[in-house]
């Protein structure tokens, strides 16, 4: 269903698919190159802690947020490059440490958090953050909104990070004339 004044599944689904697929493709290459030593050895899945989707866009995600979370989590599981830590375990560790997800990027906090997870039998290699942002351009009774989903993958051991973003533009028009005037086959309209 297309949202008439806010993004819906037609925006979020391709955003998630594109961003996660690109990130996984790149990470897969890195992992395979690192593991190549002549003999064929299947890479061990890296333990990843998906910290959730942070909504920094102008719109409320409502019930979409958990759906986006589940979509990303499912793609990670299916990739076989990563082994995600259960969301319940993550929340339980956050509760125990009383840390905010964004505070984990501080090395000391990251070590404490990783130690808690390790105690629960979940050693940690990576942290993954997803952020949804938007930018709006208004023109009389029409507006155009760019949605961007950014994935940030942080290596807990080295602190190195990888980043992948996907973007979608959507036009919202209050009049049919506006819809016609701003018609662009590469932009989603409603």
């Amino acid at each position: 269903m297309t949202g008439s004044h806010a993004a819906g599944s037609e925006v979020f689904n391709p955003l998630v698919e594109e961003a996660v697929a690109s990130l996984l493709a790149r990470q897969n290459v890195v992992v395979q190159e690192a593991s190549f030593s002549g003999a064929e050895v299947l890479p061990t899945p890296k333990s990843i802690c998906f910290m959730g989707v942070e909504n920094k866009s102008i719109e409320e995600l409502g019930d979409f947020k958990d759906q986006i979370y589940q979509q990303i989590d499912t793609m990670l599981v299916q990739s076989q490059s990563f082994q995600p830590v259960s969301r319940r375990v993550v929340e339980s560790a956050l509760q125990e440490t009383r840390m905010r997800p964004d505070a984990l990027l501080i090395p000391e906090n990251m070590r404490v958090f990783a130690a808690v997870l390790e105690r629960q039998g979940q050693p940690l290699n990576y942290l993954l953050y997803a952020t949804l942002t938007s930018g709006t351009t208004v023109n009389n009774k029409s507006q155009q909104r760019d949605y961007m989903l950014t994935l940030e993958l942080v290596n807990v051991n080295t602190g190195a990070y990888d980043k992948q973003a996907a973007e979608i533009r959507k036009g919202y028009h209050k009049t049919r004339a506006g819809k016609l005037w701003h018609y662009n086959p590469f932009v989603r309209e409603s």
């Binding site: 909504n55 969301r87 929340e91 956050l94 905010r100």
Partner: peptide, 9 residues
């Protein structure tokens, strides 16, 4: 403990 952005909003 993980969705402070939602709570803030």
């Amino acid at each position: 403990f993980n969705n402070y952005d939602d709570a803030t909003r």
